[in-house]
Design a protein around this nucleic acid. Structure first.
Length: 598
RNA sequence: GCGCUCGUAGCUCAGCUGGAUAGAGCGCUGCCCUCCGAAGGCAGAGGUCCUUGGUUCGAAUCCAAGCGAGCGCGCCA
């Protein structure tokens, strides 16, 4: 069983424990047997915890409704118990919840989003992995930000995290580029002068392809350069390195905007001379055979009907072999306990195959590999043509061009800047620019992370870049409101009293506390299922509770944080702090910034 | 043909690993700013949870079959 199956996380456990202990004592069971049965109640019951009594009744050979009624007579401090048919409901007093949680969070407000079950363990995360000399297209956001979020989520659970960008930096395209570069007599100065060096290389590539179609001699020249590059020719390698450096510099601009970094940039080229060993090992063990000139490995023993291709008929290497060689290298360097490959679901079979191949080779790491698949980006097509209905379609838009990640981010930042100028004209200059980036980028990133990763993402500019509803800016806004109240509190109460959890008495305040307490289990689920949306949904629930609470204060003066009674205000401020820290940390774990104003 | 991912409100999606009357955002209707930030909140209308069987005290959730959609299935990565 997985670790989380019957171990409630600390925060929520603090609330559940007294109930579990009391029930266990009455029934002669262990609290650890009862706690996992306690879950959220049905809506409209006015309860915070619920215990369905079916299983307990069965094992005690009793009627479930009678058992619930019996348990409802228990006395648990700070809780009102009631039976509703076969359910035991527990309504917690706000002050009780506050008394349990606020002192813990005062010590370390990030504790609600920290776990330690990854201590001493290492996870490798292979993500983003673009091809060089090509643009980061919009769809690259998926691998990049899912991988980034997972890296942070694992980190929050105590794992040592190795972030790997497995660059696509090898292939025949480079022979073509080198050939055209020479033919056109280009210089490094010209490349560096380009507004976008990847665009420069892209256009060179397009010209080269067209030229080759018209002239076999040029095609032959490309092939010569490809061969030279493979053979380690100094000039070819030098130019290849220039193309690679220029591409990485452009990538880094976007990674910086997204707040993403990597520990390893070893790409495909690095493994070019390291695949022979893996192939030789497979061959020497008699696991391979030759079929139609290609070298394949039979995986039928592991339930895969078709063999996997290891080497082309012309002797060229294939990327399954490259993945195996890279994995051996990572195992040697990091001795990982888990290794994630954040790659779209279209490649599921490829991963299944080479994972099986690793098992066949008896690799110790074979069962530590996980393919983290995700759905594709679909774009709305208004004019499909030929009488087809408008609808969601894979692929390109705007005249057949791929949508670039940078373009989408810039458009979103522009929109955010306009909204800030309108709603909060007091924010100007550098600060406005910084916040526009945080909000605009955050909107795009959260849109990508809020739903299950295996779903396809349906992208419409107007809808993905809106800032109302369940969006990144919605979370950021709730955070900014809390920050604002903290600022005003410091002005209004320079010498504030300490605050007392016992003064927390409102149901909407309790709802905020419970939403915070549930974040820990959301983090557990996010890591165990490699699913950032689990935390995203938890944060939406917290922000909704915060917004309802704070908005109540605009109609009802007594509901405000900043009431005249300084002791009450200070008490409520402790809740503001806890919620602000939880939201801010949750946003950061997903890879969004949490501005204090917006 | 085989495999993978899906099918929940008009649209886009949640549904905490089997629990009580299935929830949210957008859109629609009606409210709430002399403002602790309306990028917000409250209320309302709106669903044979694709179908049929099975397991179970209990199924949107697990199993099987079928229907429908998308994507893969030997020299690209």
């Amino acid at each position: 069983m997985r670790f989380a199956a019957n171990a409630p996380p600390p925060m929520l456990d603090l609330l559940v424990a007294p109930l579990a202990t009391a029930v266990a004592a009455r029934l002669g069971r262990l609290p650890g047997e009862i706690a996992p049965l306690i879950g959220p109640p049905a809506k409209g019951q006015g309860a915070d915890l619920a215990l369905p009594c079916f299983q307990l009744a069965k094992s005690a050979n009793r009627n479930s409704a009678q058992l619930a009624a019996d348990l409802a007579t228990l006395e648990v401090p700070g809780m009102a118990l009631s039976a509703a048919g076969p359910f035991l409901n527990a309504a917690l007093q706000p002050a009780t919840v506050a008394g349990v949680l606020l002192p813990v969070l005062a010590g370390d407000p990030l504790l609600c989003l920290r776990r330690d079950h990854g201590e001493g363990k290492t996870v490798c995360i292979d993500f983003s992995s673009p091809n060089i000399a090509k643009h980061l297209a919009f769809h690259h956001i998926r691998s990049t930000m899912i991988g980034n979020a997972l890296a942070r989520l694992y980190g929050a659970c105590g794992w040592r995290v190795v972030r790997i960008n497995f660059l696509g930096d090898w292939g025949t395209a480079f022979g073509r580029l080198i050939s055209a570069w020479h033919r056109e007599g280009l210089t490094l100065a010209q490349l560096d002068a380009a507004p976008d060096r990847v665009t420069f290389l892209n256009e060179l590539y397009v010209r080269a392809s067209q030229a080759e179609k018209a002239d076999p001699a040029k095609e032959a020249d490309s092939r010569r350069w490809s061969k030279a590059l493979e053979d380690g020719d100094a000039e070819a390698r030098h130019l290849w390195q220039i193309f690679k450096d220029a591409s990485l510099a452009e990538f880094q601009r976007i990674y910086a905007l997204l707040g993403v970094g990597f520990d390893s940039w070893k790409g495909e080229a690095f493994y070019e001379d390291k695949m022979g060993a893996v192939l030789a090992e497979l061959e020497s063990r008699g696991l391979t055979k030759v079929d139609q000139g290609a070298t394949v490995v039979d995986l039928s023993a592991l339930g895969l009907k078709k063999p996997m291709l290891l080497r082309r008929a012309d002797g060229g290497s294939l990327y399954a072999t490259r993945d195996l060689a890279a994995c051996d290298d990572r195992w040697k360097d990091y001795a990982f306990d888990r290794s994630l490959y954040v790659v779209d679901l279209g490649q599921a079979l490829h991963f299944k195959e080479w994972f099986a191949c690793a098992a066949l080779l008896g690799r110790a790491y074979a069962d530590r590999l996980r393919h983290i698949g995700f759905g594709i980006v679909l774009l709305w097509n208004d004019e499909p043509g030929e009488g087809l209905e408008p609808g969601w379609a894979r692929g390109r838009t705007r005249g057949g061009k791929v949508m670039l990640l940078r373009e989408v981010l810039e458009e979103s930042v522009d929109r955010a800047r306009a909204v800030i100028a309108e709603k909060n004209p007091g924010i100007e200059g550098d600060e406005r620019e910084r916040i526009a980036r945080a909000v605009g980028v955050g909107a795009v990133v959260f849109n990508d992370l809020k739903n299950a990763r295996t779903n396809d993402v349906k992208f419409k500019f107007e809808e993905a870049l809106r800032f109302d509803g369940e969006t990144g800016p919605y979370l950021q806004f709730a955070h900014a409101r809390l920050c604002s109240i903290e600022r005003k509190f410091r002005e209004a109460f320079p010498q504030a009293p300490a605050g007392d959890p016992a003064r927390i008495a409102r149901d909407d305040e309790k709802a905020v506390l419970i939403a915070i307490a549930r974040l820990g289990s959301a983090l557990d689920r996010a890591v165990e299922s490699d699913e950032p949306s689990q935390l995203a949904q938890g944060l939406l629930a917290l922000a909704a509770a915060v917004s309802a609470w704070l908005t109540a204060g605009s109609k009802d003066d007594t509901a405000r944080v900043l009431v005249e009674d300084a002791a009450l205000a200070a008490s409520r401020l402790r809740l503001v702090r806890a919620a602000r820290a939880a939201l801010g940390e949750g946003l950061r774990l997903l890879g969004l910034e949490a501005p204090e104003r917006m």
